[in-house]
Write a protein that binds this DNA or RNA. Sequence first.
DNA 1: TCTAAAGTTGACTAATTTACTCAGGATACT
DNA 2: AGTATCCTGAGTAAATTAGTCAACTTTAGA
Lengths: 142, 142
Amino acid sequence: MKLTSKGRYAVMAMADLAKNEDSRPVSLKEISLRQGISIFYLEQLFLKLKLNSLVHSTRGSRGGYVLSNSPDQIKLSSIISAVNEEVETIKCNKNSKKGCNGKFAKCITHSLWNELSTHINLFFERKSLEDVLRKEKNFQGE
Amino acid sequence: MKLTSKGRYAVMAMADLAKNEDSRPVSLKEISLRQGISIFYLEQLFLKLKLNSLVHSTRGSRGGYVLSNSPDQIKLSSIISAVNEEVETIKCNKNSKKGCNGKFAKCITHSLWNELSTHINLFFERKSLEDVLRKEKNFQGE
DNA sequence: TCTAAAGTTGACTAATTTACTCAGGATACT
DNA sequence: AGTATCCTGAGTAAATTAGTCAACTTTAGA
Ligand code: FES
Ligand code: FES
């Protein structure tokens, strides 16, 4: 599980889509303007979101993207893992020369990291895009 | 909250210390040999661990480090935040030119990230060095 | 049928962060 | 005195992330 701004942008973009899709597809240009994210960057993100079937695209003039499901069906975990290809936590045994190579502490941190990964995933599993929108609404209402 | 190998190494080193301290201070050299972590890297880590009063040092020949508290009193959160100077989650408003600058999605991901930070911290707050050692013991016993 | 608006794709570069190393000093034990 | 150890600041190299771009395909509408 990686947590970078890429994931954050993806959530932002998806939230924008959820809020603004309304019969017509939403173009990247619109999202770019509203969210202040470079259109080039969005292209990158939506390529992956599409590969993971989170959005559906319409090409050509007046084309754009729509969500594949209703916001309450889209878990944040799907979004995050769609854009961050490596979903797993940082592997210990990537290079076996250093650190975790069978010595004492090997599996201490290993299982710890795995537990943490589970813990974080749980967080994102529980949240849907709808939850995010609802929160924003409440916030603006105050 | 940052999660890098720096934090993992710190936990490894502290666990090694907890396991091997026994009347005499433990030298970085020993830890380095047992855990396969460069001594130079350990120096860096222990500088910070010491600044945060997690360990106590003895200089000179036969010197080394001992834990400042018993393993069950040392929370992993202290260790992690000691070595990763930035304890907070990645800030959105670091540069206000892009992304989160007052537009729609601004505080969606903001609060989301903060919630996550809390969630992760909770995980590390609950775990002590002793928990880590106990787990390793069980694991070896199987 | 032509044109403009949009998605599609692969590649590339720049910026930042992380991991790791080093040199030279201070201290204390034997 | 000599050696083992901690102490500190600095520096470099590797890896990752962020962001950009060019050339293309597809479709809607004038
Ligand atoms: S063996 Fe997996 S973290 Fe060390
Ligand atoms: S305002 Fe904090 S993440 Fe956007």
